[in-house]
Simulated assay, not measured.
Amino acid sequence: MQWTSILAIYALFWVVSAFILLPFGVQTHDEAGMDKIPGQAESAPANFQPKLIAKRATVLAAAVTAVYVINYAYGWITAEDLIFWGPTAN
């Protein structure tokens, strides 16, 4: 596998990881015991920390990418292993 392919796969995993990690550790103003600004949405986060989310996404994406590349190299799970129904090869 070429390094550019690994980089592209890492970028995809990073974006997915960031979106998956967004809701964890976030509190609304009501949950944090803070006053809301008039007109503010009730679901607006009170403690949004994008740097922390980016760090966590970086670590998670690196781990998932490493597992993906190792699986690609050793072939533990192939496309044929993911066919659970349908025609089978004879």
Score class of each variant (00 low, 15 high):
Gln2Val: 10
Trp3Asn: 07
Trp3Lys: 08
Thr4Glu: 08
Thr4Ala: 03
Leu7Ala: 13
Leu7His: 04
Ala8Cys: 09
Ala11Gln: 01
Leu12Arg: 01
Val16Ala: 14
Val16Cys: 13
Ser17Glu: 05
Ser17Asn: 06
Ala18Trp: 15
Ile20Phe: 15
Ile20Asn: 05
Ile20His: 02
Ile20Leu: 15
Leu21Ile: 14
Leu21Tyr: 08
Leu22Met: 14
Leu22Tyr: 11
Pro23Glu: 05
Pro23Met: 09
Pro23Trp: 04
Gln27Asp: 10
His29Cys: 09
Asp30Val: 11
Glu31Arg: 04
Gly33Ser: 01
Gly33Pro: 07
Gly33Thr: 07
Met34Gly: 04
Asp35Gly: 14
Asp35Cys: 13
Asp35Ile: 14
Ile37His: 15
Gly39Thr: 05
Gln40Cys: 14
Ala41Ile: 01
Ala41Thr: 05
Glu42Tyr: 11
Ser43His: 11
Pro45Val: 04
Ala46Cys: 09
Asn47Phe: 08
Phe48Met: 10
Phe48Val: 06
Phe48Tyr: 12
Phe48Lys: 02
Lys51Asp: 07
Lys51Tyr: 14
Lys51Ser: 14
Ile53Thr: 11
Ile53Glu: 08
Arg56Ser: 01
Ala57Lys: 01
Thr58Arg: 02
Leu60Glu: 04
Leu60Cys: 06
Ala61Gly: 05
Val64Pro: 00
Thr65Gly: 00
Ala66Cys: 10
Val69Ile: 11
Val69Ala: 13
Ile70Val: 14
Asn71Glu: 05
Tyr72Val: 13
Tyr74Glu: 15
Tyr74Gly: 13
Ile77Leu: 12
Ile77Phe: 06
Thr78Met: 06
Ala79Glu: 10
Glu80Ile: 11
Asp81Asn: 15
Asp81Tyr: 04
Ile83Pro: 00
Ile83Ala: 08
Phe84Cys: 01
Phe84His: 03
Pro87Asp: 07
Pro87Trp: 04
Pro87Lys: 05
Pro87Ser: 11
Ala89Asn: 13
Ala89Arg: 11
Asn90Leu: 05
